[in-house]
Computed example of a mutant assay.
Amino acid sequence: MIMRNWIIRYAVFIIGLYFLTLGVVLIIRSSLGTSPISSFSYVLSLNTPLTLGMATFILNMLLIAGQFWFLRGIGTRRDYMEIMMQIPFSLLFSAFLDINMYLFRDMTPESYAGALAFLAAGCLIQAFGVVLEIKPNVVAMSGEGFVKYAARRFGKDFGRVKVMVDVGLVLLAVVTSLAMTHSIIGVREGTLVAALGVGLLVSFINTRLISHIPVHRILRR
C-alpha cells in the first residue's frame, strides 16, 4: 500500500510537470511573452543555439547551485537530499519543454484575440500543472527550492522572496534581450498576465476543484 501510494504521488507529480510545460509553451505560442520563471530561458533560446529546454536546464542548475550556497552552515542532510532530487526532474522538465515546443511549433494565433485565447489557455493549463506538481509533496522544483532556501537564509517571507525572484528573472530577461538584440523580445504583456493570473488560478483550482476529486483523497493517505 505504501509503495502504491508513492508510485501514485510521483505519477501525479510527473503529469503535473508535463502540464506545467504545456502551459508555458502555449503562453509562448501566444506571442505575448512567457511566464516570469521562463522569461530568461526563453530569451536565451531566441538568441542562442540553445533550445528552450537546454536553456531552462542551465538556469535550473544555477538555481540548484544557489540553494547549496544558501544552505552553507545551516543545511541538514534532508535539505541536501531534497536538492539533489531536483536534478533528474529538472532534466525531465526540460525534455517536456522541448517536446511541447516541437509538437506546437506550427501553432500561431492569427489575431490578437486568438493570442489572448492562447494566453488564457496557457495560464489555466500551467496553473493546473502547478497544483498537480505541489499536491503530492514529493519534490520541490528548483525555482521553488531557490525561493524556499533564500527565504530561510535571510529570514524573509516566502511570498515576498518569490516576487523578488520573479521580478529579477524578468529584468534579467529584458537586459539580456536588449544586450543581444537592442530591443525587448520575449517579454510582453502576457508575462504580466501570467505572473498575476497563474497564482490566482492555482489558488482557485487547489481550493475549489482538486479538493473535491478522488486524487486529493488518495494523496492524503
Score class of each variant (00 low, 15 high):
Met164Tyr: 12
Met164Ile: 13
Met164Glu: 11
Val165Asp: 08
Val165Leu: 14
Val165Arg: 10
Val165Trp: 14
Asp166Arg: 03
Asp166Gln: 11
Val167Trp: 09
Leu171Met: 09
Leu171Pro: 02
Leu171Ala: 10
Leu171Ser: 07
Leu172Phe: 03
Leu172Ile: 01
Ala173Ser: 07
Ala173Met: 02
Ala173His: 00
Ala173Cys: 07
Val174Arg: 00
Val174Gly: 01
Val174Asn: 01
Val174Cys: 03
Val174Phe: 00
Thr176Asn: 12
Thr176Glu: 10
Ser177Phe: 01
Ser177Tyr: 01
Leu178Lys: 05
Leu178Gln: 05
Leu178Ser: 02
Met180Tyr: 14
Met180His: 09
Thr181Ala: 15
Thr181Val: 15
Thr181Leu: 15
His182Lys: 14
Ile184Asp: 06
Ile184Gln: 09
Val187Thr: 06
Arg188Pro: 04
Arg188Cys: 04
Glu189Leu: 09
Glu189Trp: 07
Gly190Leu: 10
Gly190Thr: 09
Thr191Phe: 05
Thr191Lys: 04
Leu192Glu: 07
Val193Cys: 09
Val193Gly: 03
Val193Phe: 14
Ala194Cys: 01
Ala194Gly: 00
Gly197Met: 13
Gly197Thr: 13
Gly197Pro: 01
Gly197Arg: 08
Val198Ser: 02
Val198Trp: 00
Gly199Val: 03
Gly199Met: 07
Leu200Pro: 02
Leu201Val: 13
Leu201Trp: 11
Leu201Ile: 15
Val202Thr: 00
Val202Asn: 00
Ser203Arg: 15
Phe204Lys: 07
Phe204Gln: 06
Phe204Asn: 03
Ile205Asn: 06
Asn206Tyr: 14
Thr207Tyr: 15
Leu209Met: 11
Ile210Pro: 08
Ile210Asp: 11
Ser211Lys: 15
His212Ser: 12
Ile213Asp: 11
Ile213Thr: 11
Ile213Pro: 11
Pro214Tyr: 01
Pro214Ser: 06
